[in-house]
């Protein structure tokens, strides 16, 4: 585990847009998200289901309690949403690679995989479409990342992005149509 100093440095660097610093933070946030998800799934907390919103908020509370540097809530949400996206994209890539390996897949998948393979939206396709959208309107792509992957509410997104809630709502509606159209093609 990295010490406090490192985290502080990475956080500052990442805030300046340093991709490597973001990578260094990845395992910390990832471990925390995973821990929270596991506890949710184990039913440790009554009424706590596996929802992105709950995961991100709880991970935030736990990390903020550990390190004062995490206490910028807006900033944490931004990282967490990007993390969620990255984890899921990596996971989907692994899955795709496993399937391609030799063209066979004779395994019993976990329940979660079975669900995901079952006609749900393809994370890799969404990821690619989001990257295209970012070229047309970067803020819209950001709003989608925060809302869809981070599970943030409109007002939280407005705070993170620094625009009005009405603008976020409009961005989401527009991006949702654009992505829907792109994914259906």
């Amino acid at each position: 585990m990295s010490d406090t100093l490192d985290i502080t440095a990475h956080l500052h660097a990442a805030r300046r847009g340093d991709a490597a610093a973001l990578d260094a933070l990845f395992p910390i946030v990832y471990d925390e998200l995973k821990r929270v998800a596991r506890r949710a799934l184990a039913g440790e907390r009554a009424g706590h289901t596996l929802q992105a919103t709950a995961l991100v908020h709880e991970a935030y509370l736990r990390l903020a309690a550990q390190h004062a540097d995490w206490s910028d809530r807006r900033y944490f949400f931004g990282i967490a949403a990007a993390m969620m996206r990255r984890i899921l994209v990596n996971h989907a890539r692994d899955r795709a690679a496993d399937k391609r390996g030799g063209g066979v897949m004779a395994t019993t998948l976990s329940a979660a995989d079975a669900v995901a393979a079952n006609g749900e939206l393809d994370v890799l396709e969404l990821h690619a479409a989001l990257e295209t959208l970012a070229k047309l309107d970067e803020r819209q792509a950001r709003v989608v990342e925060l809302k869809f992957f981070g599970g943030l509410e409109i007002d939280d997104i407005a705070e993170v992005v620094g625009v009005s809630s009405a603008t976020v709502r409009r961005d989401w509606a527009m991006a949702r149509m654009w992505l829907g159209r792109e994914l259906a093609a």
Binding site: A37, L50, A52, M84, L88, A92, A184
Partner: peptide, 16 residues
């Protein structure tokens, strides 16, 4: 067309 949020099944992939 695009769901409002990520499904729990997707998030369960975190546990992989």
């Amino acid at each position: 067309a695009l769901p409002e949020r990520l499904s729990p099944a997707r998030i369960a992939a975190l546990l992989d």
